[in-house]
Design a protein around this nucleic acid. Structure first.
Lengths: 118, 118
DNA sequence: TATGTACATTACCTATCAGTTATTAAACTA
DNA sequence: TAGTTTAATAACTGATAGGTAATGTACATA
């Protein structure tokens, strides 16, 4: 799968509060579907759907234990998401610092700041 | 707005490749709608809609310059998104390290690893 | 072997999303 | 002032998301 496609799935998966809560729970350790469903006022199939979304995004994986299907967190895709954001945030911060320096320099000389382009 | 609601909007906004490309462009500096639309095979209203999604999420903001409406990046919400992810990734990594240590310890004694619960 | 448990799958509904074309508004320019 | 540029808005469409209830399936156990 393409990196861009993976990011689509990852960010879409993270956009739902139920799914974020499931990930938060799984950060503390494996859990079965019943355990994961317990805190929510939602049907079991609804939780299974959310789990499928998380699985397609590669954020969690499944084990098999008799009729139980414990899920666990897969942090790799979380890291990819962070990496994407950080890259652009850093470029921006650099520009911002350059802009700041420029504004400081202009202020040192007779001020022309805040003047609109005419 | 609630923190959870903000994360919903932020991650949903990041889930679209066009919107991520717009953010990437804005990381290098301000740009008008026409400039932002140029790389895409998409109508101007479509881009305006994407910008509205990014704006609602607080990821960008708008200036006014005559009939132009230059947008710029607002990195605060990007940071919030990173913070959310990192929190749970870290908890997980800690557990993972504990698990590793436990497995090492078990391996030092007569091995019972990989035995399924019966 | 019959029953209960854990979970997946299916069919369905409604709301939202991502795009379109057409139109409108505001500001610059010849 | 007439025409052009920049961008927003409205109305429409098809696809997808998130939920439901009903059903099916695999396994454990009495």
């Amino acid at each position: 799968m393409q990196s861009s496609e993976r990011l689509n799935l990852t960010f879409a998966a993270l956009a739902d509060p139920t799914r974020r809560a499931i990930l938060a729970r799984l950060a503390t350790g494996e859990a079965t579907v019943t355990e994961l469903a317990e805190p929510f006022e939602m049907s079991q199939p609804a939780i299974s759907k959310h789990l499928k979304v998380l699985e397609r995004a590669g954020l969690i994986s499944m084990d098999v234990d008799a009729q139980r299907r414990p899920r666990k967190l897969e942090p790799k895709r979380l890291q990819e998401a962070v990496d994407w954001i950080e890259r652009y945030r850093e470029i921006f911060e650099q520009n911002y610092q350059r802009l700041d320096a420029l504004l400081d320099e202009l202020q040192a000389k007779p001020s022309r700041r805040k003047q609109a382009k005419k």
